[in-house]
């Protein structure tokens, strides 16, 4: 039984491999597959670093986990170094990158956290909001930069490695690099928001009072039978909306860009002439893709801003309860 299952699995893998080889051989272009490949996470079956499963959860390091670490590590190094250098110098006024960072800290504190959360808890929640903002912003933006695609080109044509070799570079090529386009990631971030709201309410009012604050007081009891479930569901709806908005916006933008760029290859096949197809495709697709990329830059910033703004609004709602 066991060996049969193993055998079947092996056979399937072998078939897949043959299929891939054929796919590579006849160079047929499937736009949908390519786009999904560039937007979604790398397959769990071929992780970059295989780790054991704990309690049925596969902790293997996939492309998106690696991107998370890259973004987090980069942010930590850059921001901490800049801050340390700034704090070490004698002058009060920051320069260069630090002035931008300080401007960001000041703007977030004074115009996002302070009006929503109130003066009492500003310094408690500003670090969370700032971390969320820079993390989401950089995660969003890094997807617009084709680092791995360039790496892949270098690997393929400069180092002349085969497309299916087992090199590290080749293994990081699969999957998209925008972690925030994966709703697992945005759901995790929304869960952070979800628990931050509870922690904020508990810190401000105490644990029991926080849950009481969820429902407006001073109504006859039959209303509460209706209100309590609705409020409880609202509690889950908010992080769900955060999750879906961010993931959908990021995925949508990338799909739009990739679809338009796919026109080059589709025209190639339609016209059955590489020169004509590529020429027409370039003329149509590249200006459009540039336009959408420009739009994406705005979307990247707005979505990071909206996520953090809504987080601070929710935290503020838990702290400053209006009745």
């Amino acid at each position: 039984m066991m060996s049969a299952a193993q055998h079947a699995e092996e056979a399937q893998a072998a078939a897949e491999h043959v299929g891939e080889a054929e796919h590579g051989a006849d160079e047929a272009f499937n736009a949908g597959e390519v786009i999904i490949e560039h937007v979604s996470n790398s397959s769990l079956d071929h992780p970059i670093l295989h780790l054991p499963s704990i309690a049925g959860i596969d902790f293997s390091v996939t492309k998106h986990v690696m991107m998370l670490w890259l973004v987090a590590g980069g942010l930590f190094v850059v921001i901490t170094l800049a801050t340390r250098r700034y704090l070490k110098q004698e002058r009060l006024v920051p320069t260069g990158f630090m002035s931008a960072l300080e401007w960001l800290v000041q703007v977030i504190r004074d115009s996002m956290v302070l009006p929503n959360v109130g003066p009492k808890f500003v310094n408690t929640w500003t670090p969370l909001i700032l971390t969320l903002l820079v993390f989401i912003l950089v995660s969003n933006a890094i997807g617009l930069v084709p680092i791995f695609e360039v790496l892949g080109l270098v690997d393929r044509y400069v180092l002349s490695n085969a497309a299916d070799s087992e090199s590290l570079i080749n293994s990081v090529l699969h999957g998209g690099s925008t972690t925030t386009a994966n709703y697992n990631v945005t759901a995790a971030l929304a869960i952070i928001t979800f628990f931050s709201i509870i922690v904020a309410g508990t810190m401000a009012h105490g644990f029991v009072k926080h849950w009481k604050n969820l429902v407006p007081s001073g109504h006859p009891w039959p209303i509460y039978i209706l209100l309590i479930p609705i409020e409880l569901m609202s509690m889950f709806v908010r992080p769900f909306a955060l999750t879906m908005r961010l993931a959908a916006n990021m995925t949508g933008g990338h799909i739009a860009i990739l679809s338009i760029l796919s026109l080059v290859f589709i025209f190639n096949q339609v016209f059955e002439s590489a020169l004509l197809g590529t020429g027409v495709g370039f003329a149509v697709a590249v200006p459009l893709a540039v336009g959408i990329s420009a739009l994406e830059i705005i979307v990247v910033m707005v979505q990071a801003y909206v996520f953090t703004l809504l987080t601070s609004v929710f935290i503020g709602m838990a702290i400053n309860v209006h009745h």
């Binding site: 115009s111 709806v237 769900f240």
Partner: peptide, 22 residues
């Protein structure tokens, strides 16, 4: 403007989010 639109955006997304989630 974004700050003032915060509650409205929340409500709008909550409407769609609630329908989708439930």
């Amino acid at each position: 403007n974004v700050r003032r639109s915060g509650p409205a955006a929340t409500a709008g997304y909550a409407l769609i989010g609630a329908i989708l989630l439930l």
